[in-house]
């Protein structure tokens, strides 16, 4: 990862940088590496080397592979601390969200597949029914994870552990009447589907 920071690729630089600037709406070139974002990053302890300023630098340098395959992009919790503190109003939280979408479009395998599965399942459930049903979308999410564990990672133990954990949470929620079996739906789902058709990405 250290090495890739030093590689300058003129042929790919402009297009990737402009793509990120355009899609995220953030002016990355305004970054002067003061690292206020790095100091405040919620997941800084988890990503260690990789901080928002480094991600921005990497994009400017044109390292597309590195920018899409790092822990920050996939661990970012969208707390928006970096952008709130940035003296140049660069919201790196929006940049990591944009990079997730670029990875999806270009069918690049996510570093943490569970993150992608979660947001896909949640969003699809919301558009499908007009409202998110916790049990339904969690079902799809677990299904996607299990299929990934089984066919890609060939790891059946991970599936059993995951299911055990979710069943445990499910039971304690059931006891507290925090699990709901009535189905939430909105007639607006027809409009949402129409909107989803005209969206570009």
């Amino acid at each position: 990862m250290n090495q890739s920071l030093l590689m300058y690729k003129p042929e790919s630089t402009k297009s990737f940088l402009s793509e990120v600037i355009e899609k995220s709406g953030q002016n990355l070139t305004a970054c002067y590496q003061c690292r206020r974002c790095a100091a405040g990053c919620s997941v800084g302890d988890e990503t260690v080397f990789f901080t928002p300023d480094k991600l921005i630098r990497m994009i400017i340098m044109g390292d597309k592979y590195g920018a899409l395959n790092n822990e920050l992009v996939w661990k970012c919790v969208s707390c928006y601390t970096c952008g709130t503190r940035c003296p140049n109003d660069i919201q790196t939280g929006k940049i990591t969200e944009t990079l997730k979408k670029i990875a999806k479009q270009e069918k690049i395998k996510p570093l943490i597949p569970k993150v992608k599965h979660f947001h896909d399942s949640f969003f699809k459930s919301g558009v499908r029914w007009g409202r998110v049903n916790e049990m339904e979308f969690m079902g799809f999410y677990e299904l996607k994870n299990s299929l990934n564990d089984f066919f890609v990672k060939k790891d059946t133990k991970a599936i059993i552990d995951e299911i055990k954990e979710q069943v445990k949470l499910g039971f304690s929620m059931l006891k507290l009447k925090r699990l709901h079996f009535d189905f939430q739906m909105s007639r607006g789902r027809i409009e949402l589907r129409r909107l989803s058709k005209i969206s570009n990405n």
């Binding site: 899609k23 969208s78 969200e97 997730k100 979408k101 999806k104 979660f118 947001h119 896909d120 949640f122 969003f123 459930s125 919301g126 558009v127 007009g130 409202r131 998110v132 909105s186 007639r187 607006g188 789902r189 409009e191 949402l192 909107l195 989803s196 005209i198 969206s199 570009n200 990405n201």
Partner: peptide, 18 residues
């Protein structure tokens, strides 16, 4: 009446327009 899901953070990470 008939409100729909706001999309939460997941929509922001999946589809900007939505």
């Amino acid at each position: 009446n008939d409100w729909n899901c706001c999309g939460a953070t997941s929509a922001g990470k999946t589809n900007d327009f939505m």
